[in-house]
Nucleic acid binder design. Structure first.
Length: 896
DNA sequence: AGTGTGACGTA
DNA sequence: CGTACGTCACACTT
């Protein structure tokens, strides 16, 4: 690190004033977390902080906050700031969050009883000047202008949060025609409505400034007050006492006793872990990136680098390298450069880093046959451990090159997911930064500088990739301990890691589609969309409305047609299907009917178009499963999402007809768990009545209804069953009586009564649900049957909305997550059994509680038995795991 | 061009 | 004012 050429610089920020500015500059509705916490002031403040740190590169930093309204000023002058209505609750809650941010950044915070932030700033500024530092003061309070001199500059927000004016002595003179020393005299004369300092009627900025310029100082003005002519002069004389009080209040105190030395304000390295936590909680993604970009370069300890000297492995050298450094005893980090998606890929470069410290890279395109064979043998050898970061895509690329991989000993993205579920991303660079305290990117940049002399892009990319491989190896080591602490070892070794291969295979195989059928659906849905649009336009007598625009619909419905208002949302009133149906019931307006139809068929058309665009050359659709996405442990499916193919309506189900058995296979088989979540609830709660209900093997909702209502099984009416069904489904989500009443269209009191009756029958369920939340509050996390944790810090939040949200998550996570554990085990069981029994049938899809398989000729009955057996035996619950299965030519035909 | 929002599909 | 996701179009910001 080169010593900065400029002198030391202290940056002082007025926390309250800047946060308050930000609060009013940034629209509240645009800045809130998904849990409802408003963050506009935190965002604005942090954004300003980052910008100033970046632009000014201060060597010392501190932030001052006001403590309370009571200061020496309010004692002297009870009206001081008395006009201020108490700041909005939405603001108050954010001050603590700002302090959290500052704590994570290791920036000292000052609060002094009886004084304002400005006084603390004046005092620190005075001390710093005495020690020869330059001072920058960032505040929205103009009183600070009195501190400006050649050494002290005030950065004053002009408007918003991104535009700061530099107030130097020259700038103060330009703006007010006064010197900084004269500013408080001027301010006292002018008064300040925001501080409730009274002004003099008829004396505004112009007159106040004129007087100060004319008389030099307020003291001189007072001494010669009789010389002031005119009405303004009379007014001044009448209010002289007031002006003098103002002057006392405006003067900043520069000598508060503070037991701090300027040295204590020197910038420190920041707490990466805590920054992550705080920014995660605030859901500041872009800001965090900006922060890293800004601060990383200034971080002296950030970049220790990796102990590796990457070497290019030329043709003929690879086999030897692998024999020496990737033998059975060696763990090797692997990082592939290339591309992959939709179940296939391409390798352009392979980087390897052995645990003996050696590492290098090679290009598969330029291998000798011997090298190629050695690579293939190494990758395929289960006894030679390899470590990847997010292996699945790289496995696709390697497989496409003809290399099968066995012996994946760890996947750092997966380990990180188990240790820290609920993160947005498990980017390698972020994890390396967080767990190893090293900077992957800076390292790469350094390498680039060195190598621009002798290398070239090729060389640089190879070195970068090798460093990644080394980082993966180190990270795996570091995360091992993390995982052990959190009890996720078995879940990782026995479920998540082996599942990678199964998912890779499912993605690679894909599912066959009937594109003709899809095209025919597309055209019929398109016709239906056009028809619905015509009907809608006829109903309102104009066509210049975009039916897909909620904003334009709001105008039509609520302004032009003056329909009753629906539920309020951020942007006005909702136009969601439920509300539109509601409006239709009230108004019978034909536009609504057509609009709802338009929504339905548009959605279907778009779904079909998406699917058509995803069909690969082999006539199949290859989705990508996400294994580190859902915090509960479920898989996700993208590009395209095959876990949300319509099923509820007849028209929607026609799309399922397009998923068909592929050439060379006999049919599709679907198998799903019945009521797996309620079964897990029965297991976890150990509620005898619920366990009995499942043991009876009868219609679950009917049985529970008969128990709740105390009638015989044959006396359960459809209405009773429907109510209890809604209750059964809602339980695992933390359903409230309000929610239940809305869903069933009944009064809240009636819904509450229903819940009470339910819990009277199934008391164990109620006890379990309260216990699970209570335990999570104590421990900080929930746990599934296989020990998958979910951390829920918001359970102890003071914010009711956040806390209750976290409580519902705590109810749901063990149930949804245990179901996810179980079906993952089932998938592994099915996969293993298929291989052991040498079946040609294969797994294609997983849809949370359902598996879809392609049945090889002649395997139909055996396969069904195999799948039922493996799914049913995946995990021994206190109730049976009931599996229902169906077989057919299409996904729809295989429904059961 | 990138981001946020509303709406809606699934379990 | 039930959970977990992904995708799309629109509207807005940069």
């Amino acid at each position: 690190m080169v010593e900065p050429a400029h002198p030391s610089r202290l940056l002082l920020l007025d926390g309250h004033s800047l946060a308050y500015r930000a609060f009013f500059a940034l629209p509240v509705e645009n800045f809130s977390t998904t849990t409802g916490q408003t963050t506009n002031a935190v965002y604005g403040f942090t954004s300003m902080l980052i910008n100033v740190l970046r632009d000014e590169e201060p060597t010392h930093v501190a932030v001052a906050f006001d403590v309370s309204r009571a200061t020496f000023r309010s004692e002297k002058f009870p009206d001081y700031k008395a006009n201020r209505t108490s700041s909005p609750d939405e603001f108050k809650g954010q001050v603590g969050l700002i302090k959290d941010v500052l704590e994570a950044l290791h920036i000292p915070v000052f609060e002094k009883d009886g004084y304002e932030a400005d006084d603390v700033i004046a005092t620190l500024a005075e001390q710093a000047q005495a020690e020869g530092l330059d001072v920058l003061i960032c505040t929205g309070d103009r009183d600070a202008f009195q501190l400006v001199n050649d050494q002290v500059t005030v950065l004053y927000p002009k408007r918003g949060v991104s535009d700061l004016t530099r107030m130097t002595p020259e700038a103060v003179y330009e703006r007010y025609g006064l010197s900084p020393e004269q500013y408080p005299d001027y301010a006292a004369l002018r008064g300040d409505p925001s501080d409730n300092l009274p002004n003099i009627a008829g004396v505004g900025e112009k007159t106040a400034a004129k007087w100060v310029v004319q008389f030099g100082t307020l003291d001189d003005l007072v001494a010669r007050v009789d010389e002031v002519k005119g009405k303004a002069g009379d007014a001044l004389r009448a209010h002289l006492g007031q002006v003098l009080t103002n002057r006392q209040l405006t003067e900043l105190v520069r000598d508060i006793p503070l037991d701090t030395r300027v040295d204590d304000l020197a910038r420190q390295s920041w707490d990466r872990e805590q920054v992550h936590q705080v920014f995660d909680a605030l859901q500041f993604r872009v800001l965090r990136d900006r922060l890293y970009q800004t601060l990383e370069s200034a971080e002296p300890e950030a970049d220790e680098g990796f102990e590796i000297d990457p070497v290019r492995l030329d043709a003929g050298e690879v086999a030897g390298w692998l024999a020496e450094h990737a033998a059975a005893g060696h763990r090797v980090g692997v990082s592939i450069r290339g591309s992959w998606s939709r179940g296939t890929g391409e390798v352009t470069e392979v980087a390897v880093a052995s645990d003996d410290g050696e590492g290098g890279w090679f290009e598969p395109a330029s291998l000798t046959p011997d090298d190629d064979a050695a690579v293939a043998a190494w990758l395929a050898d289960a006894e030679r451990p390899k470590v990847f970061h997010d292996a699945k895509g790289q496995l696709h690329a390697l497989l496409a090159r003809g290399w099968t991989v066995r012996g994946v000993a760890a996947d750092t993205a997966l380990v990180a997911f188990l240790a820290l579920p609920g993160q947005r991303s498990y980017d390698l660079a972020d994890l390396v930064l967080r767990f190893l305290g090293r900077e992957l990117r800076a390292q790469a940049a350094d390498a680039a500088v060195q190598l621009s002399l002798d290398g070239g892009d090729e060389e640089q990319l190879g070195r970068d990739e090798t460093i990644r491989a080394r980082a993966v190896l180190d990270l795996a080591h570091s995360l091992d301990g993390e995982l052990a602490n959190k009890g996720g070892r078995r879940l990782f070794d026995e479920v998540e890691l082996p599942l990678v291969g199964v998912l890779a295979s499912m993605e690679q195989i894909g599912i066959a589609v009937d594109t003709d059928h899809l095209r025919s659906l597309e055209s019929s849905f398109a016709d239906a969309v056009a028809q619905a649009a015509d009907d809608a336009y006829d109903a309102i007598g104009r066509r210049d409305v975009n039916l897909g625009s909620p904003k334009q619909l709001q105008t039509v419905l609520f302004d032009e047609l003056a329909m009753p208002k629906t539920k309020r949302i951020k942007t006005g009133y909702t136009t969601d299907a439920e509300s539109l149906a509601d409006l239709y019931a009230k108004t019978q307006h034909p536009f609504l009917e057509a609009l709802l139809r338009h929504r339905d068929v548009s959605k279907l058309r778009v779904t079909v178009e998406g699917l058509l665009n995803s069909v690969a050359d082999d006539g199949r659709i290859h989705t990508t499963f996400g294994q580190t996405v859902a915090a509960t442990g479920r898989l996700s499916s993208t590009d395209p999402n095959l876990q949300n193919i319509p099923i509820r309506t007849d028209e929607g189900r026609r799309i399922r007809e397009a998923f068909v058995v592929g050439d060379g296979y006999e049919s599709l088989l679907t198998a799903d768990y019945s009521q797996i979540e309620m079964r897990i609830m029965a297991h976890l709660s150990e509620d005898e009545a619920l366990i009995d209900a499942f043991a009876s093997g009868m219609d679950f909702h009917a049985v529970t209804a008969s128990r709740v209502f105390g009638v015989g099984a044959d006396e359960v009416t459809p209405a009773m069953r429907a109510k209890i069904k809604a209750m059964n489904y809602g339980l695992a989500y933390g359903l409230s009586s309000y929610g239940l009443s809305r869903q069933l269209g009944i009064e809240v009191a009636e819904a509450q009564k229903l819940m009470d009756e339910y819990f009277e029958t199934f008391g164990g369920v109620r006890d379990y649900l309260s216990a699970v939340v209570e335990r999570a509050r104590m421990e900080g996390w929930t746990e599934t049957i296989m020990g998958r944790r979910r951390y829920l810090p918001d359970l102890t939040s003071d914010n009711r909305q956040r806390r209750e949200m976290a409580e519902r998550m705590a109810l749901n996570a063990p149930i949804q997550g245990s179901a996810a554990d179980i079906i993952k085990v089932a998938m592994l069981g099915v996969d293993r059994a298929l291989r052991e029994e040498r079946r040609a049938s294969r797994l294609l899809l997983q849809v949370h509680d359902e598996l879809v398989l392609e049945v090889a000729p002649g395997e139909r009955d055996d396969l069904e038995a195999l799948v039922r057996r493996e799914m049913g035996a995946a995990y021994p619950l206190r109730v049976p795991l009931d599996v229902s299965a169906g077989i057919g030519r299409t996904w729809q035909d295989a429904a059961h």
